[in-house]
């Protein structure tokens, strides 16, 4: 019980009982009521997460919309390297068939195929 060794694994029952008497408060019920009253109003971790869910979702939607707008504007801009008529224009410049685009009547399909083939 009163072992003087630091390697003692046993509890000192007498000392423990005295310390218990010294440290144990008498009004546990009052304290518990007080804490429970606070627990009833305190937000928990899932409520905190829930509170962040709506603003988080709204922020994500705004970001997606902004990203879509920027992407669309980039694709539509004349500086974009992805202009849809560029391949045709490149072919036309290669074989001198600008007349295909400037002609008042639609060109023959064979002429267009021939022009593309020659462009390669």
């Amino acid at each position: 019980m009163n072992s003087q060794s630091p390697f003692d694994h046993q509890r000192d029952a007498e000392l423990g009982a005295m310390l218990l008497e010294v440290l144990t408060p008498t009004d546990d019920a009052v304290f518990v009521r007080r804490v429970l009253a606070r627990v009833g109003t305190a937000p928990t971790w899932w409520e905190v997460l829930d509170g962040w869910a709506r603003p988080g979702l709204a922020a994500a939607l705004v970001l997606v919309a902004l990203a879509g707008f920027l992407l669309g504007r980039t694709l539509r801009s004349p500086e974009s390297g992805m202009a849809l008529d560029e391949p045709v224009r490149a072919v036309a410049e290669g074989i001198g068939v600008a007349s295909l685009f400037s002609a008042s009547v639609p060109p023959d399909v064979d002429m267009v195929v021939l022009a593309v083939n020659n462009g390669q």
Binding site: V35, R38, V39, A42, P43, T44, W45, W46, V48
Partner: peptide, 9 residues
């Protein structure tokens, strides 16, 4: 106790 409740996750 309140901190434990907040961080019980």
């Amino acid at each position: 106790f309140l901190a434990a409740l907040r961080h019980i996750g």
